[in-house]
């Protein structure tokens, strides 16, 4: 294995790009929710929910296992993950928007619920263990495009989710800055009272924001499971929280988030694949140091960038008409 990865660029396309897509999807999901004014630390739990449902569906569909059918399974898995994330996040939206409860508490409930449901269902229905195994290879190589110079590696041994992810990211950024819905989302996070006075239904917009974040986090969870965690055991190992940190260090702005996502995914690859990247395996640091590196770096970045925060002004505050 170490032979293959002596070239760092290969590791980048093999691991860093798919993980970056996952982080970006979830992080932009968080953006939708938080720019509309609702804190969403449930991203981790929603990712688990998306991964769990996708793994379950693929597990039961696995009988049809020819190469084309496999990509169909991926597509179905991703859709199911996204839909389940969308539905699951309703509970957070209901608590945060309709019931005006503490947004961190209801999100914590979601974070605890998803892994528990996964383990319970896996043990009860699948095969009596904690994990759901869908282990096969889901990578694809696009015929002509993969022979191109420069961008070629992006199209060989890649995941379908990468392309879907890129398409969604572009669409979302345009939606966020160029459409009426995007503007409304942002206004509800900055000044819901002003938005309300202009006839915008703050509650509805926030529901949309939270549930879109659920859709994206569910999709991200499913994409992560298919790419990296085929023997899914109900944990996404803090990726949802990293995506949240990414959102904060990126100051709730899509392009900055993209930059941070690139940097983070490189560190994440180093932390999980250090043994197989040529020059790193010779340094010989304990693997635990590598594993905690993304989290240490995040903490340092947060310490530097949080002082002058540009968080949405109404973030975390339930909308109370009476305060106008």
């Amino acid at each position: 294995m170490s032979e293959i990865f002596s070239d760092l660029s290969f590791a980048v396309f093999w691991y860093a790009v798919p993980i970056m897509i996952v982080l970006l999807l979830v992080s932009l999901g968080g953006l939708m929710s938080e720019r509309s004014g609702v804190v969403n630390i449930a991203l981790e739990g929603i990712m688990v929910m998306g991964a769990f449902t996708a793994a379950t569906v693929i597990y039961f569909l696995r009988q049809a296992d020819d190469p084309m059918g496999r990509q169909w399974m991926v597509l179905i898995g991703l859709s199911v993950g996204a839909i389940s994330g969308f539905l699951f996040s309703f509970f957070h939206a209901f608590a945060a928007v309709r019931m005006q409860s503490n947004q961190i508490i209801s999100a914590t409930a979601l974070n605890m619920f998803a892994p528990a449901l996964h383990v319970f269902m896996a043990r009860t229905y699948i095969r009596g263990t904690d994990s759901i195994n869908i282990r096969t290879t889901y990578r694809i190589t696009v015929p002509i495009l993969s022979d191109l110079p420069v961008v070629g590696p992006l199209f060989s041994n890649a995941f379908l989710s990468t392309y879907i992810g890129i398409a969604i990211l572009i669409a979302l950024t345009i939606m966020f800055y160029k459409t009426r819905l995007g503007l409304r989302l942002r206004s509800c996070g900055e000044n819901p009272h002003a938005a309300d006075s202009l006839g915008i239904d703050v509650g509805k917009i926030r529901y949309i924001g939270v549930m879109m974040s659920g859709l994206l986090a569910g999709l991200g969870g499913a994409a992560y499971m298919i790419a990296f965690d085929n023997d899914f055991d109900g944990h996404v190992l803090g990726l949802g929280f990293l995506a949240l940190a990414l959102l904060i260090s990126g100051q709730w702005k899509p392009l900055r988030i993209l930059v941070f996502a690139m940097v983070f995914s490189l560190f994440y690859v180093v932390s999980s694949q250090h043994g197989s990247i040529g020059f790193l395996s010779s340094v010989n640091l304990p693997s635990e140091v590598y594993r905690s590196m993304p989290f240490i770096i995040t903490l340092v970045v947060l310490a530097f960038f949080s002082k002058a925060t540009q968080a949405p002004k109404a973030l975390g505050e339930p909308y109370d008409v009476g305060k106008r």
Binding site: I41, I104, G238, F241, L244, A245, I248, P286, E288, V289, R291, S292, F295, I296, T298, L299, L302, A303, F304, S306, K307, T309
Partner: peptide, 25 residues
């Protein structure tokens, strides 16, 4: 530094998890 304690604590949870594994080892 105005870092939200929730996010900082979550990062510290994972740092503790891995580093304490190392220390025990």
């Amino acid at each position: 530094r105005n870092v939200h304690e929730v996010v900082a604590s979550i990062m510290l949870n994972y740092i503790a998890l891995h580093m304490i594994n190392l220390m025990v080892r």
